[in-house]
Simulated scan of single mutants.
Amino acid sequence: MLGYLARRLAASVLILLGVSIVTFGLTFMIPADPVAMIAGRNSTPQMREQIREQLGMNKPVPEQYARYLGRLVTGDLGISYARKSEVAPLIASRLPPTLLLMLGAIIAELLIGIPAGIYAATRRGRFGDKAAMTLSFLSVSTPQFVLGLTLLYLFAYLWNWFPLGGYGKLSNLVLPALTLGLAGGGWYSRMMRSSMIEVLRNDYIRTARAKGMSEWRVVMKHGFRNAILPIVAMIGLDVGIFMSGVVVVENVFGWPGIGQLMWQAIQSLDIPVIMGVTIVAACFIVLGNLIADLVSPLIDPRIRLR
């Protein structure tokens, strides 16, 4: 276990190093002069040159990256061009709402996807299977902003069951979490169906049925435990995906997380914030995958970490 964990941590460091190189390249790929954004419209060439020298932007690119990496290791994500404040505390203040939304979305997609996948697998080729897979295809194919606006119109505006937006109450969480959960649930149901069908073909399933065990017990005790493993791996990926992919949903529902912060940064070309959110999302993706790999042997003892 310790050897595996050490290897995974080393690989994670290399992945994050690669992400840092890509995010650093954003400063050169974005068609905007960050110095002009910092100095303002009325700045003189002398002022801009002074700022460029203070920020080290007149140094060679390798030296600039080395300085960026050194600050990154200490947790310094730079200063926001638009807000004139440190990026790290700014992102930290937006993390709790996004983590809460991420948790709600994962719960929603599990509650939607797993039962739908099991239902479809146990009725393979029949009407229930086709109906469940059609609904999963629709949920995956529908753009999140369309789905979010539809839920807002129906459940918040038309029927007044939930608030139109905001943050702070459980009722505020339901619609944005459901918007994310429906798309994820569609993927989960398809994955769960395929995995369950494969598991139900195994010899030990036929043996359990031959012993007279009820179909419900066969499916849930013997089938579900083995079929759930791909879902565990997907949850690890979703941790990172939700951290970086909630931009649209958070803006539709006025959710004050890092997705909304990212969108505001993109609109104002606030490069340090864009880079900071990207790095934080990458850290969560790596962490989510590592946790998924460590949890898998607890579900199926036959899996060994190597």
Rank of each mutant, 00 (worst) to 15 (best):
Q50I: 06
P176E: 13
I118S: 00
A208L: 04
L229R: 06
R190C: 05
A6P: 01
V248E: 03
L237T: 13
N160V: 14
G25N: 02
I291V: 15
P176K: 14
F242K: 08
D293T: 06
I118A: 01
G236T: 07
N172W: 03
L14H: 08
R123P: 01
G168Y: 07
S12V: 04
G78L: 05
V174P: 08
E109M: 15
V73T: 07
I30K: 01
G25S: 05
I241L: 12
D76S: 07
T27L: 05
V61M: 13
D270W: 02
G240D: 12
V277S: 05
N289T: 07
R302Q: 13
G70R: 09
A177D: 11
G3C: 09
G259R: 09
S12C: 08
L16A: 12
M275F: 00
G117Q: 03
M102R: 06
S296D: 07
R123Y: 03
C283T: 13
S296V: 15
L182A: 03
E49N: 13
A11E: 14
R7H: 14
G117Y: 01
D238M: 11
P230Y: 12
S189I: 01
P62G: 15
M102W: 07
T98W: 06
L72G: 02
Y188Q: 05
R225P: 05
